[in-house]
Design a protein around this nucleic acid. Structure first.
Lengths: 155, 155
DNA sequence: TTTGAAAATCCCCGCTC
DNA sequence: GAGCGGGGATTTTCAAA
């Protein structure tokens, strides 16, 4: 199980992941080495999956976000379909959703043109794919991977 | 503009964001101080937005992912609607999408029950919201914020 | 958990190209 | 302007209590 202090450490790290340990230690009022030990333990126990650098999508010409609903033939689907989709770097997320053999993708492309190319040339032709339904994002107001940390439902 | 080496640094950081500078320097074959200077510049120029810790959602009882299509009355929408939604910690993403005055949310809840509560008690009652349409995620195969770095379309 | 000391790293500054 | 290297401050790490 996880206690109040570790929870606090995680909240601090979620705010700013790249602050020195000493600073975290100061904020929770513990010795730096103890904090380090806790973080290492949280990593080993799987509470912390890793650390990511967050790049500015616009600077890399990847500001066109879209969601693609991919309907598949549940009986004749290529078992490697998910892997094939996952191998496409522009595909950031792949979810299997309810409502009949369909996947839901979040993709990030350069523009609507390249998005169209992605859908028609790379996704639609895949074996088992019956149809696709793309929702174009015109404006993004919030986009974070931050998780609400509630003490009550920890695993 | 950005050159081959900086691109390389970014790719390395996208793999593992929390490696020491010296290690990055070794991999790109440059002096640590030069690498540091490049990273600082990338941060200042807005290519790097920040650093995030990636927590394991399951460990925090937040494994129920869902997408919510929120239809609004375009004429009578509360100007603070987006802010209100953004203030809900379980709402990770808010996009404005095409197809008529509607928002698209990605949310992360504890279970379907709490998800239902979230939709009915917190979102549906908001002024300007006409209807909502929730897609439940049953299985997630890929979920990353990583951006494909193509040299050709840099800004 | 803390302390304390050793090792590694960070990062400013001057030098060179 | 960009890269390199020195060196002191900072931080990380590890041992012992």
């Amino acid at each position: 199980m996880i206690d109040e202090i570790s929870l606090n450490i995680l909240k601090i790290l979620q705010e700013k992941a790249r602050i020195p340990n000493v600073e975290v230690a100061r904020q929770v009022g513990m010795a730096p080495s103890a904090v380090l030990e806790r973080i290492r333990k949280l990593e080993k126990m799987g509470y912390i999956d890793g650390y990511e650098v967050r790049l500015n999508p616009e600077r890399f010409g990847k500001s066109q976000v879209a969601f693609i609903h991919v309907h598949t033939d549940g009986k004749d689907v290529d078992p490697g379909l998910v892997d094939t989709l996952a191998a496409i770097p522009q595909v950031q997320e792949i979810h299997f959703v309810d409502g009949g053999d369909s996947y839901f993708l979040k993709v990030r492309a350069t523009d609507t043109s390249s998005l169209g190319h992605l859908v028609r040339q790379r996704i639609a032709p895949l074996k088992g794919v019956i149809s696709t339904n793309t929702t174009i994002v015109m404006n993004t107001f919030k986009e974070t991977a931050r998780i609400p940390i509630d003490e009550k439902d920890l695993a």
